[in-house]
Amino acid sequence: MTQEPLPSASETPPESPAAGEPEVPQEIAGRSPLRIAFDRLRKDPVAIVCFGIVVLFGLIAIFAGTLSDLFGVSTDTVRASDRIDLATGFGLKGPPYHGFDPEHPFGVAPGSGDDLLANWLYGARTSLLIATLAVVFSTVVGVVLGLIAGYMGGMVDRVIQFITDIFLTIPFLLAALAVAPILAERFAGNPAVFEQVTFYSVIGILSVFGWMQMARIIRGEVLSLREREFVQAAKVMGVPTHRILFKEILPNLVAPIVVAVSLGLPALVAAEAGLAFLGIGVYGRPSWGQTINSAVQYFDTYALYLWEPVIGIMLLVVALNLLGDAIRDALDPKTRR
Rank of each mutant, 00 (worst) to 15 (best):
I257V: 14
L133T: 09
K247A: 12
L168M: 14
I257T: 07
K235R: 15
R158P: 01
N190Y: 09
T198H: 04
F162L: 11
L177A: 03
M212W: 00
I257W: 01
I205L: 14
D165Q: 14
A176N: 11
I218M: 13
V136N: 05
T132Q: 09
V236H: 06
L174P: 00
V236R: 06
E227N: 14
A215I: 10
V202F: 01
V236E: 08
T198E: 01
M155K: 15
I182C: 08
T241M: 13
G142T: 07
V222T: 07
E195M: 14
V193F: 14
A192H: 14
M214V: 13
R226A: 02
L245H: 05
K247P: 00
E227P: 03
I163D: 03
G154D: 08
V208R: 11
S127V: 07
I249A: 01
E195V: 08
V135R: 06
I217G: 06
A184D: 09
V193E: 10
L253G: 04
K235T: 10
T132H: 01
F246Q: 03
V179R: 04
G238H: 03
I130F: 02
L174I: 15
T139S: 15
R216H: 05
A184G: 12
I257H: 07
E227Q: 15
R243F: 07
G153K: 10
P256L: 07
V136L: 12
I160P: 05
V254D: 00
L128M: 15
A234W: 11
P181E: 06
G153E: 07
L147P: 02
E248A: 12
R158N: 14
G220I: 10
F172G: 07
P240S: 15
P240K: 14
F137L: 13
S138K: 09
L250A: 10
R226I: 06
